[in-house]
């Protein structure tokens, strides 16, 4: 019996069960805090017709961008895309579908999805192309649109440290969408820089409790920087 032990030892095992046509929710903002090795495994696996829910789509040769090369992505649900030439090409050729979603709405869709709330009302996007065709309700004299929440067949998450029970903490702004993504997958896979024994992380510092997590794997990370900005020291 493995009890609460969520640790898997290969990336193959980490992504086992991912099939063509599934929806995958991915953490990360730009190239910061992305589950880079889990993405690489999906590339290796060659799964196709995938819908990805992720704030961005990486760059040409890193992050989710690598899945465009063999046209593994059918649809992106994102707030900002197009940092990669291949994305633009496939979009213009009609080979890729994009559902642009305001960033806060995207985060809330994941959060609500993970919390069992099927939809919510927000002022964001009312009166804009985002609100077209959506139900409008007035609350206290202001108009709001109804947004449906999102869940995924898989969620792929990048954490800093996890214990073997799948309790996770994140590092700095690499947190971003990861905690919401972690709650919204039928199967949530978290890759981390370090796996520790239960009890080594303080219960009050846990950001993603293990109940949300199905698999944990330790990886090594490139952590590529998208915009290297410095000041003279």
């Amino acid at each position: 019996m493995s009890g609460f032990n969520k640790v898997v030892n290969s990336y193959e095992e980490a992504m086992a069960g991912l099939e063509d046509g599934m929806t995958v929710i991915a953490g990360g903002f730009g190239l910061c805090g992305i589950p880079e090795n889990l993405i690489a495994e999906i590339k290796k696996k060659g799964t196709r017709e995938l819908t990805f829910v992720s704030n961005n789509c990486g760059v040409d040769d890193f992050g989710l961008g690598v899945l465009l090369v063999d046209r593994q992505i059918k649809k992106m649900i994102s707030s900002y895309v197009g940092e990669n030439a291949l994305f633009e090409k496939q979009l213009l050729a009609g080979e890729l579908e994009v559902e642009l979603t305001p960033q806060g709405t995207l985060a809330e869709k994941m959060r609500a999805g993970g919390a069992g709330i099927p939809a919510f009302f927000t002022a964001t996007g009312y009166g804009t192309p985002v609100g077209e065709g959506k139900e409008v309700r007035e609350f206290n004299g202001r108009n709001y649109i109804m947004e449906e929440s999102i869940t995924g067949d898989f969620a792929i998450v990048k954490g800093w440290k996890a214990d073997t029970y799948g309790n996770v903490i994140y590092r700095d702004t690499a947190q971003n969408f990861n905690p919401m993504a972690a709650t919204a997958g039928k199967i949530t896979v978290v890759e981390v820089e370090e796996i520790v024994e239960p009890g080594e992380l303080s219960p009050t510092e846990i950001q993603t409790p293990g109940i949300y997590v199905n698999r944990v794997i330790k990886g090594t990370f490139e952590k590529r920087i998208e915009q290297r900005t410095v000041r003279q020291g």
């Binding site: 707030s79 900002y80 940092e83 633009e88 642009l100 305001p102 960033q103 709405t105 996007g125 804009t128």
Partner: peptide, 10 residues
């Protein structure tokens, strides 16, 4: 080319 609204609408 439309890259997206990011957080502007929020």
């Amino acid at each position: 080319l439309i890259k997206g609204m990011g957080g502007a609408m929020d």
